[in-house]
Computed example of a mutant assay.
Amino acid sequence: MAAFAAAGAADPALAGEVAALAEQAGAQLTRLRAAAPGSPTSTAAPSGGAPPAPETRAWLRGQVAAAAASHAAACIGQSGARAALLGSIAAGLAGQDGRLA
């Protein structure tokens, strides 16, 4: 979520383009928090913030790809519904990565 906010602040036109993706990421984060109450889920801004336009899209895509990989890796240490949720979120983020290409 922080990456979408930082990218939107750096490039307002991009913010409009990716509003649906940001909304989807927010919904996924809400489901993840509900599935693992008390677990840390960071929404802190990425270090260094977003670069200025036109590099912002590429930067955001990198952030989304990294989040997808992180969620996929986290599946390995989980089981049941939590693993399924993490896998689903990883797949959704991978799809967002493709849409940002």
Rank of each mutant, 00 (worst) to 15 (best):
R99W: 04
E23S: 15
G80H: 06
L14A: 06
A90H: 05
G26E: 09
A6W: 03
A53I: 07
A73M: 06
A45T: 10
P37N: 11
T41G: 02
G87I: 01
A72G: 10
A72K: 10
A68L: 07
S42A: 11
G62S: 07
S70N: 14
L32R: 12
S79G: 11
A44I: 01
A58V: 15
Q24I: 02
L32Y: 05
A22C: 07
D11I: 02
A13M: 06
A15G: 15
L60D: 09
R82Y: 00
G26K: 14
S79C: 05
R61D: 09
A22V: 03
A3P: 00
Q24R: 15
R99K: 15
S39Q: 13
G48Y: 03
S79F: 08
A20S: 14
T41I: 08
A34T: 09
L14K: 14
I76K: 15
V18Y: 05
G80D: 10
A22K: 10
L86A: 12
S70M: 08
T56M: 07
L86E: 11
A45V: 12
A6Q: 09
A15W: 05
A19S: 13
Q24Y: 10
F4R: 02
G80M: 12
Q96E: 10
F4C: 03
T30D: 15
W59D: 12
T41W: 15
G92N: 10
A53E: 05
F4H: 08
A81M: 11
I76V: 14
P40M: 11
A66H: 14
T56K: 04
G92Y: 08
A13L: 09
R82H: 03
I76T: 14
R99L: 13
A101F: 02
P12K: 02
A2T: 04
P12S: 05
L100A: 11
G26P: 05
E17T: 04
D97Y: 14
A15P: 08
G26A: 13
A65T: 12
A67E: 15
P12W: 00
Q28V: 00
G8T: 03
G26M: 04
Q28C: 04
A7C: 07
G92D: 12
R99I: 01
P40T: 08
V18E: 09
G92L: 01
R99M: 13
G95F: 01
L86Y: 06
A73Q: 14
A27V: 00
G8S: 12
A94N: 04
A9Q: 12
A45L: 11
